[in-house]
Amino acid sequence: MDAVVGMESEAALTLRRLADAANLALLQRPGPGGGPFWDPLAAEHMAAGAPDLDAAIIRLFLGGSSVPRERLAELFGAAAVAALESAAVLQPAEGGLASPLLLASFLNQHVFAAPPPGHPRFSRDLAPYCGPESLFYGRMLAKRGPYGRHLDLCTGTGLMALLPDAEATVAVDLDPSVIPVARLNLALNLRPDIELRLGDLFSPVAGERFDLITANPPFLPQGPGGELPLCGAGGATGGEMPLRILAGVPDHLSPRGEALIYCEGFGDASGPALAASLAAICSPAHDYTGWIGSVAGADRAIFGLVALWCAAGASETQAWAHWANLARTMPASHYYSMVWQVRPGSGALSIRPLGPR
């Protein structure tokens, strides 16, 4: 599948023209607090003092607000508005047209994405996801290399496919709804060389090997009725999807390659629960290092997870009862963020701090 085709390509060209005409530096600023998205009120405050074209772009793509169609036609041109509507970058909304996704800018890469839980524009039905951990992981990958072939699984926005220095990149995602968005994002960043494939993890690259494998997979436990959007659903305990990826890495890694897989999960003082599960499936020809980015008491993560289940449709009683049952099946006193590095080796497994703990 070509990375840049049809409506997404035309929309990306339109967006680049608009950005060139406006103040592109506005789009390169991170949101308040260092997250990938602006708060809508902060975006509106910035728009109020901006030139007309800048203000429209800020309201649409940073704040998620609507702008009257007639006003957009005056500022963008009727053809530009039509191109953005055809690619679903703009959709009808109360008060005119609005963008269903917001623009996240990171290290001079610009991607449309769905805001994470807690953001005023969050919706469980929107994908692809981008959150604070995406930026943490992205800093590890930015300009890393050079590599020959790069595989990015669960690519979503395509951001992680954009960051490493690689001669060729294949980006894979299971969700067909994110492929047009990823294609638009690749075009927006002038990366038609990145190949997008639809499928379940390694299925679209059977028999192929890569010098770098990356993934920011779903890692959250499912709720009592399966509540969670596809981009967050990591299985019953949250570790199933990361384990599937780590189990498949040895069959697709080149002799001198490495994998860097991001995930989060519960554990205890001795380490993440995922480490014990991984020990049972480790390849004897590879070394596995769990680089711990942060570790904290699990209370905040538990309350956040329960709130997310409730937002996705579970009652509070159902959510807490489900958590009580889930906690009996795994250590859950601590919560870890980590990057698992896999390299050819002798089957060693270790846990190390990525920085000060």
Rank of each mutant, 00 (worst) to 15 (best):
G131E: 05
F106K: 01
A48V: 01
D39V: 04
S270Y: 02
E70G: 11
G131F: 05
R121D: 02
D54H: 07
R244L: 08
G207I: 12
A296C: 09
A171V: 13
H119G: 06
Q222P: 02
C154A: 14
P128G: 07
H322A: 13
I281N: 04
P229D: 13
E70W: 03
S346K: 09
A56V: 02
P115T: 06
I302D: 08
V178G: 02
T169V: 14
H150E: 02
S270G: 15
P255S: 04
A280P: 01
P224G: 13
S66D: 01
R124E: 11
K143G: 06
L326C: 09
S350C: 13
H334T: 02
L212S: 04
E133I: 13
A11Q: 04
I351C: 13
F219W: 15
Y335E: 03
P116F: 13
D175G: 02
I351F: 04
C130W: 07
D2E: 12
P272Q: 10
L90F: 09
L84N: 07
G345M: 12
V111K: 07
F112K: 08
A279S: 15
A269N: 08
L188C: 10
I58S: 01
L135S: 05
L260Y: 05
I57N: 01
E208R: 14
E167G: 13
A48F: 00
R328M: 12
L141Q: 02
R124M: 12
G95W: 10
P255C: 07
L230T: 08
S9T: 13
P224W: 11
R209N: 01
P36I: 10
A307H: 12
H110P: 00
C263Y: 11
S65G: 10
A80D: 15
S66R: 05
C231G: 04
V306R: 07
V339Y: 05
N23I: 00
